[in-house]
Design a protein around this nucleic acid. Structure first.
Lengths: 120, 120
DNA sequence: GTACTACTTAGACAAACTTCGAATTATGAG
DNA sequence: CTCATAATTCGAAGTTTGTCTAAGTAGTAC
């Protein structure tokens, strides 16, 4: 919960990340460090209504449904998306706090940033 | 080179990433999606003078020199750091443009952002 | 109930990744 | 030149990851 107030540069370049912070962030980054998952995240986030059902996503890839499902689970486990079943379909949406957290890590001049909860 | 001017949300949630953009970004993200490399990047960026020699880094990890060297190469290949030999030591520094590019991807309200070159 | 669709789970396998120890290159000191 | 130090390159071992097929769960319609 270190509220950094300097604004010289991106938080990652302000002071050495602790071992535990690095481990935690790496989990989120690993989830996003894949072309398919990046596109899935992007497609979900930019879809009308801020949510997309799996059926909206699978068609864009040359991959089987189980593979897409696996990637969605990875994103979900990392806290980047959240899913909900409504009738026949399962809808996913972005968790903005998680995405903001990643952005804040690498963004300079973001002002006073709290690494734990970059949402306010 | 799509200059997005809307500011509803993070670029990643504005419009679906193209396959090639996703592939390119995933390379950079993969480099950063590891606890050791995250800490290396952070240690280099926050070191006095904006640069650190390998000898400043190895001590912080329970890893052998070849392993650290391997991770530094990964970061370098991804364009996130740059290295230079001066005498006996090799000094690494952050490439700010690369870090900014990652930050811009996930940061909302960043204003008009050019995905290809988020530096200005 | 059966049949059909949407999605997830389980198991298997190849490719990629992390790490190591050993050998190698590069530089400086005597 | 020889020796010592800093760092990288080179295989190899063990682990993780991405993808598939096959099977299972959840819901709708009849």
């Amino acid at each position: 919960m270190t509220a950094v107030t300097t604004r010289c540069c991106a938080p990652i370049a302000r002071e050495p990340l602790s071992e535990s912070d690095a481990a935690e962030l790496a989990v989120m980054l690993k989830a996003v460090a894949d072309p398919v998952r990046l596109r899935l995240l992007s497609m979900i986030g930019s879809h009308a209504g801020g949510e997309a059902c799996v059926c909206d996503l699978t068609g864009a890839f040359d991959l089987t449904a189980p593979t897409i499902s696996h990637h969605l689970k990875t994103l979900r486990t990392a806290g980047l998306i959240d899913g909900e079943r409504r009738g026949t379909w399962v809808y996913y949406r972005i968790v903005p706090e998680a995405v903001n957290k990643l952005g804040a890590l690498f963004t300079p001049l973001a002002g006073p940033v709290d690494l734990e909860l970059a949402s306010a």
